[in-house]
Simulated scan of single mutants.
Amino acid sequence: MKNIFMSVLFLVGSFSFAQEAGKAGELLKNEASKTEMESPKAKRTESRNSNNSGFRNQNGNNNGFRVKNPNYQWNQQYGYSEVFLRIPEQGMFSVELGDQFISNNSGRFRFFDLPSGRIPVSIYESGYLLYRTTLNVRNNSRLVLDFFTNEGLFLLDSYPVQNQSYGFNDWNDVWNNPYGNSGGWNDGGSYANLMDNSSFSEFMDMLRKNARFDDSKLSMIRQQMRTTMFTSQQISALVKEVSFDKNKLSLAKSMFSKCVDKHKYFLVYDAFDFESSKRELMEFVQNS
């Protein structure tokens, strides 16, 4: 009886700390049709040749024979980008990104030396196609994504790549912050993509100059949120720029995941005119 009780507790604990699919990030549309996914032809074969625009040329089908290329080149100037994709589920998954292909059961897929532009990505389980979409990769940037078989592919964020740095202190640091599992601070006590005070002042000037109404203000702020983290003080200042309380509340909730000092989020409460909005934000922060 004791063993049964302990097993139940273990299962409950596992679900309590499980990551909630779709809680963070932008869902990317699955472009693979149902027919493709159910057809045996959807299974990826290693003999398939691909030739994606922007990648190094494959000189056609050589019928199984290797042809020497006397015009070998190195250091082609086509840009540099990275894509990090995680599948937090058990199973043998494969990810094909442009002309690169990675297959493993660890759920960690890192792609380097990518050209900028639109790059197709396909995800397979045990060789069968699950998902296909197109990523818009920018030069000198790293896209971070999560894939859930029952939910889809989510673009969590984009980070600037400095000096082509390949690693992190902890692999999961890249994903933990969007799901509220970690503070995400670097050893230096700051985020690499945290907006400094000077840049924030410039952004505020641009916001006031180019956005007169709430809709345009919210659009401009949310566009910046895709690549930037903020302090509680900065978020409070941005929320104060919005006129209507319902829009203030929507912005404050959406920016909570982008806050580097969540323990000081009480500073944002001062941006509201009505006590009811303050209480709703407090409840949101408490339950996040």
Rank of each mutant, 00 (worst) to 15 (best):
N210R: 13
M206W: 07
E202H: 08
R86P: 03
F17A: 15
Y80M: 00
L218R: 08
N57A: 14
F112V: 02
F101Q: 06
S198P: 00
S116H: 10
Q19G: 00
Q73C: 05
I4M: 11
Q19P: 00
D261P: 00
N49Y: 13
V12D: 04
M206H: 00
V161H: 05
E202M: 10
L114A: 03
E202S: 14
A271K: 04
F230V: 13
R44C: 12
N49G: 13
Y191V: 03
L27H: 02
N3K: 13
N172C: 01
S14W: 07
L267P: 02
N193K: 11
F213T: 01
M37T: 11
T134S: 06
N287Y: 04
S39N: 06
M1F: 08
T134G: 04
N104F: 11
K217E: 05
L207H: 06
F101H: 14
V285L: 03
E38M: 15
P178V: 08
F55D: 04
F274M: 09
S182V: 03
F203E: 01
S53V: 10
P115M: 08
M255G: 02
K29A: 10
L114C: 03
S126F: 10
L114R: 03
M206I: 12
G127L: 07
R110W: 01
R44V: 15
F10E: 09
V12L: 09
N287H: 05
K253F: 07
L130D: 01
A237G: 09
F5S: 06
E38Q: 13
D173E: 12
N59A: 09
L11T: 07
N163Q: 08
L145T: 08
G91I: 01
Q286G: 12
S199R: 12
S182M: 00
G127I: 01
Q77D: 15
R48C: 08
S39E: 06
R138Q: 12
N193W: 10
Q77A: 13
R66I: 14
N163A: 11
D245W: 03
Y179E: 10
N210A: 10
N136Q: 14
E46D: 14
V121L: 11
W171E: 09
A237N: 13
Q100I: 03
Q234N: 09
F55V: 05
G22D: 09
G22V: 05
W74Q: 13
F5V: 05
Q76N: 09
P40R: 07
E96Q: 11
G25W: 00
F168Y: 15
K29D: 02
T35E: 10
P178F: 02
M6W: 14
N181L: 10
V174N: 04
M225L: 11
G54M: 06
L135F: 11
L194K: 11
N136W: 01
F147Y: 12
Y159S: 03
K264I: 05
N150T: 15
S14K: 03
G127P: 02
N59T: 09
K2V: 11
